[in-house]
């Protein structure tokens, strides 16, 4: 645990999962697994979150939602794909309405296997995510150009959001 320099806050979104992974994400936060002892707090606000936990695959309806939540999060940020469906479609891979895993719309930093995932592996992934978060923060300090990445996204992509435009300066006012 010595590598954890920050209490990671997570935001959870259910892509098109069957709920199995969602209830395990919540179970990871409740007394038996108690992710809160590592400072992990589940928040509903993308601007407060460091780690984006996505469960379930991606379809046409939820792709813009996942993209928008990702865009609203401030840099540095980490995406954890939870469960077989989020990793690559899982049991629904051949369904007509599933485009694939979360990495079809946003970059994913950690993949958690399992159907449904075990709370232990979610904890593992979130803690690995903190390490990635630290690395990303260091890289941002070294190369400030990366800081403007979200601004560039806003000018090119259709998913411009408040967080993209204000570059995080208004986050405290939330």
């Amino acid at each position: 645990m010595s590598n954890v320099g920050k209490s990671p806050w997570i935001i959870h979104y259910d892509g098109s999962s069957c709920n199995g992974c969602d209830i395990e994400v919540l179970a990871a936060l409740t007394p038996l697994y108690d992710a809160e002892r590592f400072g992990v707090v589940n928040t509903g606000n993308p601007k407060h979150a460091d780690i984006f936990v996505v469960t379930g695959g991606i379809n046409d309806q939820n792709a813009p939602v996942v993209k928008q939540i990702y865009d609203q999060m401030l840099e540095p940020k980490v995406v954890v794909a939870c469960g077989a469906c989020a990793c690559g479609g899982g049991v629904y891979q051949t369904c007509y309405n599933i485009m694939g895993g979360v990495d079809t719309v946003i970059p994913v930093d950690a993949y958690v296997p399992g159907c449904a995932v075990k709370p232990e592996s979610i904890l593992d992934a979130v803690i690995a995510g903190v390490g990635i978060l630290d690395e990303k923060a260091k890289a941002m300090k070294k190369n400030p150009a990366d800081k403007d990445r979200s601004e560039k996204d806003a000018s090119t992509g259709a998913h411009a959001s408040v967080a993209d435009v204000d570059d995080g300066t208004n986050a405290d006012a939330e």
């Binding site: 379809n59 309806q61 309405n97 599933i98």
Partner: peptide, 11 residues
Amino acid sequence: IGYVHRGLEKL
């Protein structure tokens, strides 16, 4: 609704 539709019945 429609965010979680996968199309299981056709499977």
